[in-house]
């Protein structure tokens, strides 16, 4: 077990290093760099920029070094806790991201909880009542939810809220709390605003999850061990929870690896539409303006979360499924 853990941690580090290289490479791929983009923008506004200034800027930002050196600087910095400097905001990356990461986590964690809380009972219900009116009804709602683009739902809700209540439901807090230190009132305001993005972002996920859980559970319900349990005289509800539902959970545990990065980055477009102060829009603009260190740090953070998420889900799977735990050479 100890050996296994060490080996896993080591491969995680290696893959993260490879990912960071790829990230850096891909961000550098488009022609030009941040300074070119910056200069073009200034020139389009009618300002002239002297070549000396451009060279100065390049040197200032370290863009005159070779890409390999830039990459090395970036990685070494990260290892020392310095994620680099955002050209666009003229602030260290950590400060740009700061609050936004927290709010992203709040929004998306709430969304995930919402998805689980709603889809689990409904999915189990749909599976155990296959081909009944309520199953068809849920399936219809599910497809509707899957088919509606999130941002469209966001726009419709924004419009309706404005029309009926005359309020803006965009943002995550009332305007007076913006850029203020955290207080009890501010937290309450966030909670008040939270439900709309959660519902908007969560519909498609909920619908998909209901369909998946229904399909998984239906497969399990037809297994021979369910008949065996019935033959023992078990009551239907206890049987369902102890045997087939337990089996149907495996795919969801395996999915945790994909959930974690979503918690931070999820729903970029909805965030932009609803002007949520989350990380999604920042990442989008950082990529557009080739803000190397901001975008890179972001993507690296997502990579770390993916790798860690996979690790966690593997451990959970091993804990929950004896076949994985024992067959792969583990000890009891």
């Amino acid at each position: 077990m100890y050996v296994y853990l060490m080996r896993r941690l080591f491969t995680m580090l290696v893959s993260l290093l490879a990912i960071s290289g790829l990230i850096f490479l891909i961000i550098q791929l488009p022609p030009g760099d941040f300074v070119t983009a910056y200069v073009t923008e200034l020139e389009s506004q009618g300002e002239m920029v002297s070549p000396e200034k451009i060279a100065f800027l390049r040197q200032q930002y370290g863009l005159d070094k070779s890409p390999l050196e830039q990459y090395a600087d970036w990685i070494v910095g990260i290892l020392q806790g310095d994620f680099g400097y955002s050209f666009e905001y003229n602030l260290p990356v950590t400060e740009v991201v700061g609050d936004r990461v927290l709010l992203s986590i709040v929004v998306n964690a709430a969304t995930i909880l919402f998805i689980y809380a709603v889809s689990f009972p409904l999915g189990v219900y749909a599976a155990t009542h296959q081909y009944t009116l309520s199953d068809y009804g849920l399936s219809f709602l599910g497809f509707l939810g899957l088919a509606t683009p999130n941002f469209l739902l966001a726009l419709v809700l924004l419009y309706l809220a404005n029309r009926w209540f005359g309020t803006s439901i965009g943002g995550l807090m009332d305007p007076q709390y913006l850029n203020r230190p955290w207080s009890v009132d501010k937290v309450l305001s966030v909670l008040e605003h939270l439900w709309v993005p959660v519902v908007v972002i969560g519909t498609a996920g909920t619908a998909g999850m209901i369909r998946r859980l229904r399909a998984n559970l239906l497969d399990e319900l037809n297994q021979a061990y369910v008949v065996t349990a019935k033959a023992k005289g078990m009551a239907p509800r206890r049987l369902l929870v102890k045997y087939p539902l337990r089996m149907a959970l495996n795919p969801f545990i395996a999915d945790i690896g994909n959930l974690l990065p979503q918690v931070v980055s999820g729903a970029v477009i909805v965030s932009a539409v609803m002007s949520l102060p989350t990380t999604g829009p920042v990442l989008l603009s950082a990529l557009q303006s080739q803000d190397v260190y901001l975008a890179g740090s972001f993507l690296l953070l997502l990579a770390v979360l993916t790798v860690v998420g996979m690790f966690v889900s593997d451990l959970l799977l091993a804990a929950l499924d004896p076949r994985i735990r024992l067959v792969s050479g583990g000890r009891r």
Binding site: Q223, A224, Y225, V227, T228, A229, K242, Y243, R246, M247, L320, D321, P322, R323
Partner: peptide
């Protein structure tokens, strides 16, 4: 039952 593999839950 016929097939003792599938008639027992693999997780318990």
């Amino acid at each position: 039952f016929q097939d003792p593999m599938s008639s027992l839950s693999p997780l318990h």
